[in-house]
Amino acid sequence: MIVFEKPKALADVPFHYCPGCTHGIIHRLVAEAIDELGIEGQTIGVAPVGCSVFAYNYFNCDMVEAAHGRAPAVATGLKRSDPENHIVFTYQGDGDLASIGMAETVHAATRNENITIIFVNNAIYGMTGGQMAPTSLPGQVTQTSPYGRDPKHCGYPVKVCEMLSQLEGPEYLERVAVNNIKNIRAAKKAIKKAFENQIQGKGFSLVEVLSSCPTNWGMTPQKALEWIDEAMIPYYPLGVYKDRSAE
């Protein structure tokens, strides 16, 4: 008897992610949502530049690889091509979405573009080897903040959900984490809702997922998951930041 299966929307190829990285969990949650909603055949995903650049190989739906930060603009084109039939999601990291792609993010949100954004925030540039991200915490040591991030020198981290919640446009903004079973279950619910909103034509739905990067944080996988609780969640509180339908 099979009691646990790989979601059908996930391709049968090995992930390239480092041991202990939580991208794999987030991929799985996205694929589960696609399976449960029965939308694989009409879904088009957009991969970013960053650690999840190869996401186009990992999902069985049609996929597009975007330039760094441009995923929401690419998604806009994909969605506007056939708004009735295309289900479009982007999967982006913090450097991609909150630094180089900030304009595309904010304007897709303010247009209430009917797309789903999975925003993976691990407070670091992973693919390039651990540089300071727009979401790196004050004091956080990275390759380009070797003495710890000093807000006096390079400013403060960007709180994406809080910032976007000030806009009239977006339908749904929620921050979740994937560092324990309880949080993963809540993350799954949020991701599924972000797709359901799109199916129902409600508009821009972004789920920020606090994710771990043991390799570039210089921690064991176990310690990295604890660091999300100890350091990240106090700075980036979990919860719903905007839900127009619930208002």
Binding site: V64, A73, T76
Partner: peptide, 11 residues
């Protein structure tokens, strides 16, 4: 953004 919307649509 415009050229990337073109990229998406052309896809």
């Amino acid at each position: 953004a415009a050229i990337n919307m073109v990229y998406g649509l052309a896809s």
